[in-house]
């Protein structure tokens, strides 16, 4: 982890952001990649500002579940192709009341990313109504699957028939194969 970078445009941009918005922390992971922790209220303005300053592409919107801290961390990944700089904005939202305002009015491409985050984490994006429907899963009947408290192995064991192997393996003969 670096605290600064020599890449042109990065430091200026970070300073601008610090001046304008409520920036909690900035980390440089690679030369061209800065992770910026923002307050959730500032995100939309920050994204709008960034889009006006060359960051025209939204690479991804995704989410991290931190059950111990009871937060979801939303990740907004934007990129400036002409300079090759990448900014990753991270905001924290409450895990129990997972709500956030949509960014589709800033980056239209976020529509399906938000939908995916809703499907896999249960985060509701206000203003993006289409995000409330299921996209990848069909007739899903459990917790949103990418949450940490969802155990996919237990779900699989419960729901799908497993093949039973009665054949003996080697000399030990008949002992169940232990894993982990």
């Amino acid at each position: 982890m670096m605290n600064s970078t020599n890449r042109p445009g990065m430091n200026e941009m970070v300073n601008e952001l610090k001046a304008r918005f409520n920036v909690e922390e900035v980390t440089f992971v690679q030369d061209h990649e800065a992770h910026v922790d923002l307050h959730r209220k500032d995100l939309h303005e920050a994204l709008t500002y960034m889009k006006q300053n060359g960051f025209r592409q939204l690479s991804a919107v995704t989410c991290i579940d931190w059950p111990n801290e009871k937060i979801f961390q939303l990740i907004f990944n934007i990129y400036d192709w002409s300079k090759g700089n990448r900014f990753i904005f991270r905001v924290k939202i409450d895990r129990e009341e997972a709500m956030f305002t949509t960014i589709t009015n800033i980056y239209g491409g976020a529509k399906y990313y938000e939908r995916e985050v809703h499907e896999f984490f249960g985060v509701v994006f206000e203003g993006n109504d289409s995000a409330l429907k299921q996209l990848f899963l069909e007739q899903w009947d459990d917790l949103p699957p990418l949450r940490k408290d969802f155990d996919s192995r237990a779900y699989s064991d419960r729901k799908y028939v497993k093949r039973e192997y009665k054949t003996s393996f080697g000399e030990k003969g008949g002992e169940p194969f232990e894993r982990n």
């Binding site: 899963l137 699957p145 969802f150 996919s152 192995r153 699989s156 799908y160 028939v161 497993k162 093949r163």
Partner: peptide, 19 residues
């Protein structure tokens, strides 16, 4: 198709097709 293979613990993939 036999026993789920590498996805044996996935929440979306069935394990034993001949069922």
């Amino acid at each position: 198709t036999l026993n789920g293979g590498i996805y044996h613990d996935s929440h979306a993939v069935i394990n034993q097709l001949d069922q």
